[in-house]
Write a protein that binds this DNA or RNA. Sequence first.
DNA 1: CGTACGATCTGCT
DNA 2: GCAGATCGTACGA
Length: 200
Amino acid sequence: MSKLSTSFYLTNNVESIARLLLGKFIFTKINGMLTGGIITETEAYNGVLDKASHAYGGKRTNRTEVMYRQGGIAYVYLCYGVHYLLNVVTADSDIPHAVLIRGIYPIIGVNNMLDRTGKSKVDYNLTNGPGKLSKALGIDNSLNGVKYDSNKLWIEDREIIVRNEDIVIGPRIGVDYAGEDSLLPYRYILLYQNYTNYIS
DNA sequence: CGTACGATCTGCT
DNA sequence: GCAGATCGTACGA
């Protein structure tokens, strides 16, 4: 039940962090509402070298500026004008690595998640997409740049064991524009297990 | 200033 | 399976 400290996020190997985030618990506390779940899907974005990254080629804009800060903060941006997507900025400052959180399994504060999403059933389908989990967790761009050890947003290690055989690795979603980099095996999926005994 | 488009999801067919 | 939603960001004029 320990909150991950900033040092967890500072390695410059973004793939390893994407792997290690599987099975961790992510929480938000927004307007007094505590919600959280188990991270089940991530994607690594490998900074300036990665054509799929917003920071490819060292591109710096207002939006991408938080990616260049020291790891351990959130990068939130609007996609398709509709969905907020939540990333974990990693690595040292000036190294714009990030991990997109693509899916969680809902565990904590599920009634708040149902209210926010208008859904009626608690299962993987409630938060199995980057836009959906942001909606369920109450994430919007006001969390952009917020540290992952804050009181609004944090990640905990509750010692779920994630074995390599529980993981599927493959190419990322929706990044066809990145050419050959769209084929890189930067997507990490934790195979479904029964988490219902954790729900509260 | 104008325009094109996106690290998606939903609902309808 | 596909179109539509919907708007901030990026970039060129």
